[in-house]
Amino acid sequence: MVFKCAIIDDDPFFTELINHYISQVDSIECCGIYHNPFDALNKVNFQEIDFLFLDIEMPEMNGLEFLKSLTTLPPTVFVSGKTTYGVDAFENNAIDYLYKPVSFARFSKCVNKIKAHFEHTRTNSQVKQQNIFIKHNGIHIRLAVDDIFVIRAHDNDVTLNTNVRSYKTHLRLKDIYDMLPLNDFMQVHRSFIVQLAKIDKVDGEIIEINGRTIPVSRTYLGELYERLKIK
């Protein structure tokens, strides 16, 4: 799973450094860098991102004031050259608190916390789902989770393929992924989620499932082989 973020910090040196660190890991993608929180307020698409890297001490509007101006608090990795904001940070949906300067080793630990945060959120939100409801042609339809074998994102829609038929719905791939049982499904490509138990064949970076071939990104290949116990 790749988690999308935006970086908000008035220090270009630091944003370049964090962006470099992000480029070294597979699980985080940076969707935007903002050196001015007012600019971020206007431009960050909070529907698109999963979390923020947010500096606290900035001129004109600090990071905590920035969060207060939002209607929903996004999960946030706070960054600061001071340790004094720890309590404020953890009262504002903090995933982690990075004390500047930040080494790559410390950043790697932060990445693990980010992954753990979202896995934990997903696990907690799942009541051993056997069915999910999706809106198809304006009607909410119940789908048995076990019937879904592949989910594909395209343009602004997502198509769920079941044994019986396909359903198109206006959701993000991540929204669907969050509704599914963590152990049974896996994202294998930026546009595809599959049910692991339904995979018939794996041929390098291609999998076959119910007669359909699905590409697997290199980012996910190792995890896929591991989860399918392919040596």
Partner: peptide, 16 residues
Amino acid sequence: TSIKLNAHKLLSSVKV
């Protein structure tokens, strides 16, 4: 205020 903010901002990169 500006002295404080700018000194603070520079500190993190100087430490790196």
